[in-house]
Write a protein that binds this DNA or RNA. Structure first.
Lengths: 245, 245
DNA sequence: GATTGACTCTTACCTAAGGTAAGGGTCTAT
DNA sequence: ATAGACCCTTACCTTAGGTAAGAGTCAATC
């Protein structure tokens, strides 16, 4: 059950040198050392190494990792914490990817971007705020992901409620198999456009097609819609196209 | 339009020292240096910095970044490349996250994991292979693989089989959350069009958009697709539109 | 015009997380 | 008992910056 440095290295992808290093700084001590000085690692050490590698992936300095592992030896809560952090990193990557996509978009039509726009997700001090903004922006206009009962309080804005209701109904229509040319669907979309037009910004049927296409191509928005109902973003787009024709 | 080091630092999140460093190693030269020696950066430099930061996020050494940027000065293809790499990184993170979730799962019921399972996604040399496996697992889960025996009989035409396979794969892609701009999806659709073109009738990307629209508006076809997977007909249409642009 | 405060310059030294190489010991199999 | 694969320590090197010192610059205010 005990593994040599090479075996651990092959298994986990870290180099042997890294194991020495972790030993030297006391981050990961072998479970046993033979008379000849060979380091041997058991299950417990592999588990610790797993945590180390998760944290390393999250760009934690080894010193911090050591502190974290030594003061919190409950594996389960460590895992939950790491899961949360990993999901945050995913969100950040998602944001960066959408920045790349926006940049590609601008590049394709030879337009220049706002300076700030170019670095969304990269500016580490600000990305939390940017992500929140991204989300808030979405919520203001399309707060579909929040369960309805949360909408009872007057704290939530009317526009968010409207958007949520619209998306829920569209999801229902999709599941019910209503055609995008169905009068009920057309009315739904028309009213929604009308609402945005009155309350938020000028928008016509053509503009709404572009909005809908944006929701398909932007990973961030797409994910939110698709999480609510698979196919919703695409249904929305088809409905928009149908109306604008 | 020219920015000082501080302004660039605030905008992008890199430190001033990093800018000096990049200057010194020739990775990012200021657009202009005043008489007093102040570095000033313009739009072109910001764009280059953007690329540098994208690559840095992908853990490229600065030396490699420099080479890449100097030999490939077409911004557009750089962006596409970076998009691809970023998506790969996302996949890898996804894999790590699923490893964390599996570990949590095992921990919850006090069972022990296989050693290898514990390090999926971390072992960089192997993660490509592991990702493939992971996808295969997903396929099983979504059952996008066609039950082959249904199609053994010669009663079923080859073209029907091809269509069925195509639709199954598209359904899988939709459920997996693949963007219509994802290379895999684009390739899928391209091949399908190519097949139709060769075997059935002349068809180009534009024509396929019309076909896809027909599948949405025609109740019979729409029902067939939507019965297979909610949203499939709309996804197909969006993919077609994306390809024809 | 002088001063102040925020900003910038160069230079020199420091750090983290390893990589590389040298020189030598250990294990197992033939 | 010798080869070949594996392991040890030690010493030096590298990357991508961080920190600090000492001095010059800029714009605004006194």
């Amino acid at each position: 059950m005990l593994l040599t440095v090479k075996q651990v290295a092959d298994l986990t992808g870290v180099t042997i040198k890294t194991l020495y290093h972790y030993h030297k700084i006391g981050l990961l001590e072998p479970g046993e050392v033979t008379d000849a000085g060979y380091r041997l690692y058991g299950k417990k050490e592999l588990e610790r190494l797993q945590h180390i590698l998760f944290y390393r992936e999250l760009d934690f300095p080894l010193e911090d990792i050591q502190k974290l592992l030594d003061e919190q030896n409950n594996r389960y809560s460590l895992l939950l914490e790491q899961k949360k952090l990993m999901e945050e990193k995913q969100d950040r990557l998602e944001l960066i990817l959408s920045t790349i996509n926006e940049t590609i978009h601008f590049e394709e039509r030879g337009k220049t971007m706002e300076d700030q726009q170019m670095f969304k997700g990269l500016n580490k001090e600000q990305w939390q705020a940017q992500l929140k903004e991204h989300n808030d922006h979405l919520k203001e206009h399309y707060q579909y992901e929040i369960p309805t009962d949360e909408f009872d309080g007057e704290a939530v804005e009317e526009s968010a409620r409207e958007a949520h209701e619209f998306m829920s109904k569209m999801a229902f229509a999709l599941k019910a198999g209503w055609s995008v040319d169905d009068e009920r669907v057309k009315q739904l979309v028309t009213r929604h456009i009308h609402y945005i037009n009155e309350q938020i910004m000028p928008l016509d049927a053509k503009g709404f097609v572009e909005s809908a296409w944006f929701f398909i191509t932007d990973e961030f928005h797409k994910k939110m819609l698709e999480d609510q109902q698979i196919g919703l973003s695409y249904y929305l787009y088809a409905a928009a196209v149908n109306l604008s024709d």
